[in-house]
Each structure stands twice: as C-alpha cells, then as structure tokens.
C-alpha cells in the first residue's frame, strides 16, 4: 500500500487532486481511498488531504501518519508547516517550487539523500494554461513523472469524469507539460 499526503491551502484543490489520483488508480485496477483532514473549509488556510493506493482491499480508516509521498501545492507552506513530518526514508517530496534545488532543501529542512525531492513550477504553469493559480493538476503531472504510480490513461479518464470537456482537455495538457518540466533536485 502506498500512502500520499497532500499539503495545500483551501481553494487550491488539494482534495480534488487526491480524488483524481485515487480515481485514476481505481481505473488502473487498484483499491483506493481519498479523504481530507477534515476541518472548516476556509479559503487560504493550510489543509491536508490523503490518498491510499493498494493492490489489496484497504481495511484501515485512520489518517496517514507515515506517508510514502508528500506533495506540496503551495511553496509558502514550507515556512510554517513541516511537510516531511513522518515521511518514510527514501520517500518522495514533490513541491511547487521555482527556485534552485539547494534552496528547496533548505526550505524543507532536510539533508540531501534522505528523500527523493522533486520540484515543478506549478504556479507558473497554472497561470499560463488555466489563467488561474490552481496548482493541483500541475502537481499530479509531477507526481506521475516522479512515481509512475498511476497511468496517463487513468488520469485522463478521471479528469473526463470530473470536469466538463474543455476543462478536462486543458488540465490534461497541463499535466503533460508538468511532466516535462518536473525535475529531481
């Protein structure tokens, strides 16, 4: 079983991203769970969502404490949230980040070699393609590139189920673009 923790701010679509990845994994034949760390839904407040993906039916219904993958939708969160909390050794950290790799390591407060760190200019991509700073699908692209845990076909199916035609197209384009630009640092 793989466990993913999403960090975002209310309105950036962290829960939606978690749902899309879960749906994609389901279409790929996996068992899934997706849920937010439930609080009052305030725009801009730090929020957390979780995805579980497994070959077996998932029995557990608690929050995720030791994720395999952490995804950060908003770089400003790095200042006040320790996003790598509980992350398994060798796990992935995928961040919406435009600066140099060393600065990202510093912002995360981790040494090189403990985790696999990826960055992607998600805000820039979202503004270019969606004309809005909704970074969730850009991070899905980086997630697919880094981990290969869900298929492009699966995510395309999930997008089509979730969004009306043109919006699904745009987001699919965004995901592919993000896969090109995401890089391990």
């Amino acid at each position: 079983m793989v466990e993913v923790r999403w960090h975002g701010r209310g309105g950036q679509g962290a829960w939606t991203a978690s749902n899309l990845v879960a749906m994609a994994a389901m279409f790929d034949g996996k068992h899934v769970q997706s849920f937010p760390a439930f609080g009052p839904e305030r725009s801009g407040a730090p929020i957390v969502a979780f995805t579980r993906i497994s070959d077996e039916p998932i029995e557990i219904h608690s929050m995720v404490y030791e994720p395999d993958i952490v995804i950060v939708l908003d770089p400003t969160l790095l200042k006040n949230v320790r996003v790598v909390e509980g992350l398994k050794k060798g796990g992935f950290v995928i961040v919406n980040y435009e600066g140099p790799g060393e600065k990202l390591y510093k912002a995360l407060g981790v040494e090189k070699g403990v985790y696999r760190v990826y960055k992607v200019p998600a805000t820039k991509l979202a503004l270019e393609i969606l004309k809005r700073p909704i970074t969730n699908t850009a991070l899905i692209g980086a997630f697919i590139k880094a981990t290969g845990l869900v298929s492009l076909e699966g995510i395309e199916k999930a997008l089509r189920e979730r969004f009306p035609g043109p919006l699904a197209e745009k987001n699919m384009f965004l995901i592919k673009k993000s896969m090109e630009l995401a890089e391990e640092v």
Partner: peptide, 12 residues
C-alpha cells in the same frame, strides 16, 4: 456510517 471517515472518504 461513520461521519467523515466514511461519509467523506472516496473509495472503490
């Protein structure tokens, strides 16, 4: 059904 743990959790 448990609130949130089931009511708001996406599953197959």
């Amino acid at each position: 059904l448990d609130g949130f743990f089931l009511s708001h959790t996406l599953e197959n």
